[in-house]
């Protein structure tokens, strides 16, 4: 049986999906990529944003005003988190974990 993704696994998957949108990804697109509903994803994006792993960018409409639409992009700290996460997974795989 497939094991359930842990919260950290989910955070890493979210960052991996966002990383593929260097210009910033919309929450709906990210949710399709991660396979998590938008409402649940928003909570996790807030947590990632609060920890400085994700940057939240407000999209401006044609008149230059914020329309409540946000794009998400990975920060340098987010990339560092991903690097460490995958390296740790690699080390654990070597031990058969």
């Amino acid at each position: 049986m497939k094991s359930k993704r842990t919260k950290v696994d989910l955070y890493a998957t979210i960052l991996e999906v966002i990383r593929r949108y260097p210009e910033g990804g919309r929450v709906t697109r990210i949710s399709y990529g991660v396979g998590v509903p938008v409402d649940r994803l928003k909570v996790m994006l807030e947590a990632l944003s609060a920890n400085g792993l994700v940057r939240k960018i407000a999209a401006e409409d044609e008149e230059g005003e914020e329309g409540g639409v946000y794009y998400y992009a990975v920060t340098a700290r987010g990339l560092e988190f991903l690097e460490t996460y995958w390296k740790m997974k690699g080390f654990l795989a070597a031990f058969g974990a």
Binding site: T13, V17, R19, R20, G33, V34, G35
Partner: peptide, 22 residues
């Protein structure tokens, strides 16, 4: 080819580059 989640191809895949999140 840029895909956020999953890519499944039954036969061959030819592309300039492949970038997949999942």
């Amino acid at each position: 080819v840029r895909v956020g989640g999953i890519v499944e191809v039954a036969e061959t895949l030819e592309a300039g580059s492949v970038d997949v999140g999942g």
